[in-house]
Design a protein around this nucleic acid. Structure first.
Lengths: 117, 117
DNA sequence: TTCGTAATTAACCATACGGTTAAATTAAAG
DNA sequence: CTTTAATTTAACCGTATGGTTAATTACGAA
């Protein structure tokens, strides 16, 4: 059984910055070069390069070569992993009977304090 | 029209740490106190308190009071926002015709190399 | 009031992030 | 071979993260 924790760390962390999410949004529509990704962002090109490295580390993007361009493309798997993880938690959360849970927790806490009610 | 960017920053960033995801997993099954959340984690209680603040900042959890305990409960909305954002991108990505897109991009790049802009 | 437990705050430290400017790299085009 | 364009690397800087230990707060129980 594989441990996905480190991958999820990198994926969620990468998505936790607006510039990087903007790049993902752009790339979901198709390949783009560094310059194209940088154009709408208010930051220097080296800053963009750093963000791309973070996305690459999370395997959210892959890169190719075309002359002096290094086009980026979105990879589907990491987004799916992240989405799956969240949905797993939501399923557990949703299937839980909140009122009953709260009631049982209260009972449990009270019994520890000395069984009253 | 509201700008969700800052909220998503906080949510994804919060999910980008294994200890905090472990807390979310635990809380998806029901309320827990700080001590209960800390128990399986190999870190000090103050460290746990800090992680809880990050989760609170992202509104992923809310807290109540019960004597000297401060039980935490998972909130559904942020997880849904994050999941929705990812699924939006995946939908765009999936509906795209990858081969055609690459082809058009190549054409575009080549035309730029010939006729400057 | 005093004691014990749960949790937080304070102070501190090392490292990671996120940005900058300047220099270097890489490859097409004259 | 020189120039120009796209991108990366290097060096630097301020702030945020993530952790620690020690002290403090908050509350119930004795």
């Amino acid at each position: 059984m594989v441990n996905y924790e480190a991958e999820l760390d990198a994926i969620f962390m990468a998505l936790g910055h607006p510039a990087r999410r903007a790049m993902v949004v752009r790339l979901s529509k198709g390949e783009a070069t560094v310059g194209e990704l940088a154009q709408p962002l208010e930051m220097s090109l080296p800053a963009v390069t750093k963000h791309l490295k973070v996305l690459e580390r999370a395997k959210l993007i892959s890169r190719s070569k075309n002359a002096q361009w290094r086009p980026c493309r979105l990879e589907q798997a990491p987004l799916k992993s992240a989405s799956d993880w969240i949905e797993d938690q939501r399923k557990v959360w949703e299937s839980r009977l909140d009122r009953l849970d709260s009631y049982l927790h209260t009972l449990h806490t009270n019994s520890k304090k000395g069984a009253k009610k």
